[in-house]
Design a protein around this nucleic acid. Structure first.
Length: 269
DNA sequence: CTAGAGGCCTGCCCGC
DNA sequence: TGCGGGCAGGCCTCTA
């Protein structure tokens, strides 16, 4: 699912309902997510939410008692619903707030996670993460240097969370199309100017996707239940066999590192 | 250390 | 209509 834009859209959607609110209680209907939901999460009881931040594809709900970390996995989504709304199948966690709202976590495949992090410490899942793609720490010069040490395609490299976070399978294909680069190109073969183009397009694609409310293929919804509209903007992802909007050639797909990858053989060399 | 493969889950779509 | 196979937005863990 959810790549960086979808997680950021979720953050923007839930923040106004969460920040400053006290958590009345937590209801866990299914604790077996990617990891079992830790008991310490109950320490949110009575806590006031100070901030909701995003790091990579993780959301962090900060309180004076400690932080809850949420990951949406492949099929997770968050909604703000009114108190009393009957939970549906796969609605695994409710954060019940004192403003009559519930933050409701839905995740059919249960690849997502709810974790607990003590105040002032860094959870192991977030300890090894690379730079944020929308920050200046993600830049062409650093990518060029790192690429020289790797035997890997550019698509694998931009999807490596130690190199740069938040770029998943959809936005990797879309960014590579925008940059005119074949996804299977050896990372070490890219020139500085090609890295500049790719870095710029990754930032551009992510910004545009956030502005459109993310991409809904199946499971993802915005906080109010609406889909994300970036699906209408996709140039290559999921379009194998269809015509390139740019040149009319047939879009191809190829498995790279066990992930399906979409590209235009004419526009991407 | 790196790179590649497997696995976790449910749901959906396709072909028989 | 029913059923098995394959596939899906992520990422941790194990092996070589």
């Amino acid at each position: 699912m959810p790549e960086l834009p979808e997680v950021e859209v979720s953050r923007l959607g839930i923040s106004p309902y969460l920040v400053g609110q006290q958590i009345k209680s937590i209801t866990i209907r299914q604790a077996q997510l990617r990891w079992p939901i830790p008991k310490q999460l109950q320490r949110l009881h009575g806590a006031t939410i100070e901030r909701v931040i995003r790091r990579a594809k993780y959301l962090v709900i900060e309180t004076a008692q400690g932080n809850a970390i949420i990951h949406l996995g492949m099929s997770g989504s968050l909604r703000i619903v009114d108190l009393g709304l009957t939970p549906q199948l796969h609605d695994h966690v409710d954060l019940i707030l004192n403003n009559g709202k519930i933050l409701r976590y839905h995740d059919p495949r249960r690849f997502g996670a709810w974790l607990w992090c003590e105040k002032g410490s860094i959870h192991t899942v977030m300890a090894q993460l690379g730079p944020e793609p929308l920050s200046d720490a993600f830049n062409a010069v650093d990518m060029l240097v790192k690429a020289k040490k790797r035997v890997i395609t550019i698509k694998q490299m931009i999807m490596d969370n130690k190199i740069v976070v938040g770029v998943g399978n959809i936005y990797a294909s879309e960014s590579l199309f925008a940059a005119g680069l074949h996804p299977a190109t050896e990372a070490k073969a890219l020139t500085l100017s090609q890295w500049q183009r790719l870095v710029t397009e990754i930032k551009e694609v992510l910004h545009k996707a956030i502005a459109q409310g993310g991409t809904t293929l199946k499971d993802f919804t915005q906080v109010d239940g609406r889909p994300g509209y970036f699906a209408q903007e996709l140039q290559v992802y999921g379009r194998a066999g269809e015509q390139c909007f740019c040149c009319g050639n047939t879009i191809l797909s190829q498995v790279i590192a066990q992930r399906n990858t979409f590209f235009c053989p004419h526009c991407q060399q």
